[in-house]
């Protein structure tokens, strides 16, 4: 998408530059992964790209925590849709970049995976890392986000404090419903 104005920087670098790419990680909404690699190999390859040391035991532990025990050495081709999403999330929680964008990746994963992910996202926030959750799941955002950036038709409508929204409107749904009313049919 083309920027209407301004510029995007990650860690002081233009977002298209390789230096910015090293600071950030995008988990796309689709599960387009190298199917010819095993989950552990994919994670190792990512660590190589980000020039980070890899601890193999972390992979096994995270697969276990995400209810995929012993599957880290299977080819991604053999993973289900939910498992692929969880592997992407594991990558984000292992790499722990200063900026991580999670684009609807939490949609479609099982309840245990969702709870573990939320815990990791909160931990990353507590450690001073930025996580941008792009989601239509309001309850997830209420539980996890400090700030809500509301967008409609490609425009940012505003940035709001989540606690304030909940205090004033009771729920994110009520707030959005008020901010973006649906036009009545003529």
């Amino acid at each position: 998408m083309q920027t209407a104005s301004g510029s995007i920087e990650i860690g002081g670098f233009g977002h298209r530059l390789a230096a910015a790419k090293q600071q950030g990680l995008l988990l796309p909404s689709e599960d387009y992964l190298p199917e010819f690699l095993a989950g552990s190999e994919y994670l190792a390859h990512l660590h190589q790209l980000y020039e980070l040391p890899l601890v193999d035991t972390d992979i096994a532990e995270l697969f276990d925590r995400f209810s995929m025990p012993g599957r880290e050495n299977d080819l991604i081709e053999d993973y289900s849709h939910g498992m692929r999403k969880k592997v992407q999330l594991i990558a984000a929680f292992m790499l722990r970049r200063p900026f991580t964008a999670i684009d609807e990746t939490l949609n479609g994963i099982d309840f245990d995976g969702l709870r573990v992910s939320e815990r990791h996202v909160r931990q990353m926030r507590d450690d001073g890392l930025t996580v941008l959750l792009c989601s239509h799941d309001f309850s997830l955002l209420e539980r996890s986000a400090d700030r809500i950036i509301l967008m409609a038709a490609g425009e940012i409508l505003g940035s709001f404090d989540t606690a304030t929204i909940l205090a004033e409107h009771g729920s994110l749904y009520s707030f959005v419903d008020q901010e973006l009313p649906i036009g009545e049919p003529a």
């Binding site: 190298p34 199917e35 010819f36 690699l37 095993a38 190999e41 190792a44 390859h45 660590h47 190589q48 790209l49 890899l54 299977d74 080819l75 081709e77 053999d78």
Partner: peptide, 25 residues
């Protein structure tokens, strides 16, 4: 299935290994 599963090592050290996997599997 499009790929044959067999072990490969060195993913964390050499970028070329992932490319080898893409071809050899």
């Amino acid at each position: 299935r499009q790929f044959v599963k067999f072990p490969l090592v060195g993913f964390a050290r050499y970028r070329v290994v992932a490319f080898v996997a893409a071809i050899a599997r």
